[in-house]
Simulated scan of single mutants.
Amino acid sequence: MIEIRNLSKVYDTKSGTVSAVDSVSLTIQEGEIFGIVGYSGAGKSSLLRCINLLEKPTSGRITVDGKDLTCLKSEDLRQARLKIGMIFQHFYLISQKTVFENVAFSLKAAKVPTAKIKERVEKLLELVGLAEKRDVYPAQLSGGQKQRVAIARALANNPTVLLCDEATSALDPTTTKSILSLLKRINKEFNITIVLITHEMNVVKEICNRMAIMQDGRVIEEGSVYDLFASPQAVLTQEFIASVVSFEIPEVILKSCKGPLVKITFKGDVAGEGIISDTLQKFNVKGNFLHGSIEYIQELPLGIFIMELKGQKEEIARALQYIESREVKVEVLHNGL
């Protein structure tokens, strides 16, 4: 488990002090994949680097697996860091060393016996699908292969936590999907807690259990990925969700709507039920579907539909009341003409 309490990070610059992280408190459960989302300058990278004290917090506490890192002396901190792996956007492989040597580097630094290093590196390269690349150099690898080497290197010392700093931002969509699949597998097989920062909501939707949204150094909203997709509260969260699930209706369509325009959100098992068809049969109301889809988040369906309802006011009100009684969220977007 990672516990972050009242964490702040202030930088001194020529133009004055800059508060990159401002009184952030988070609890990240053991074995989960936690996403930290925000635009550039939101403070998410500074927060991530504070978790393993690559950046020393100005104030606050970081507790990882029961140890308060901010209180540890240098040697104890070095030992604690061995259990926190980290991968970066630009890989940071040593160009003069082979794939094998890059993965072995952190093991040598940890003074692991030579005989065990060979066994460990070969096992890790098999895990990330690069056993046949052990003797090649980084320049001979694709971006996705370089990130796989970086992941193997981060796992070398059997960490309990893996920090991912925009780990897929430099990769194409297909490669990104394969890297996320590898991270999910690592999380599942080894119960490694993964903290992933990104500005891409597709990445969060694909892999994370929970997430926090950062803005101006603060966490403005947090919760399960499913719940935030289903019902985002903060304006910035809504903006991020809209980048993945957009339901904007052109103004010309809005103007042509004679009846109320409603957004209906189905969560969980309810998304698979025929509630709308039941409603249209039960009440003297007609529906005109304008937009809709069912997204799968953490293998749970989330259905969002936008439709125009036509009929008598009283009958429409009864129909909407019936839909809401089935534990479905209804929002009136436009009252019609």
Rank of each mutant, 00 (worst) to 15 (best):
N284L: 07
L333P: 06
V64D: 10
G143V: 08
L82W: 02
R49W: 02
E221Q: 15
G336I: 12
Q147N: 03
I51W: 00
Y39C: 13
P57T: 13
D65Q: 15
A271R: 02
N191K: 09
T58L: 04
K267Q: 09
L48I: 13
G311C: 03
T237K: 07
E331Y: 07
E75C: 03
K310R: 08
L130M: 00
E222L: 10
L125H: 02
A109N: 13
N158P: 02
L163E: 01
D76C: 00
L82H: 04
E55N: 05
T265A: 09
V149W: 06
G287A: 14
E221L: 11
L183D: 12
I179Y: 06
M214H: 04
A271N: 01
V262N: 03
L196P: 04
N52W: 04
V136T: 14
G31D: 11
I304R: 01
S8E: 05
R49H: 01
L72K: 06
K310N: 11
V328S: 10
V203P: 01
V10T: 14
P232T: 12
E206A: 15
I213R: 03
I316S: 02
L93A: 12
S40W: 04
E166I: 04
A156Y: 00
T160A: 09
K56G: 06
A139K: 08
Q312K: 09
A156T: 05
I241R: 10
K267L: 07
F289C: 09
G303D: 12
E327P: 01
D172W: 05
E327G: 03
I197G: 06
I207Q: 14
V262Y: 02
A20D: 10
V149T: 12
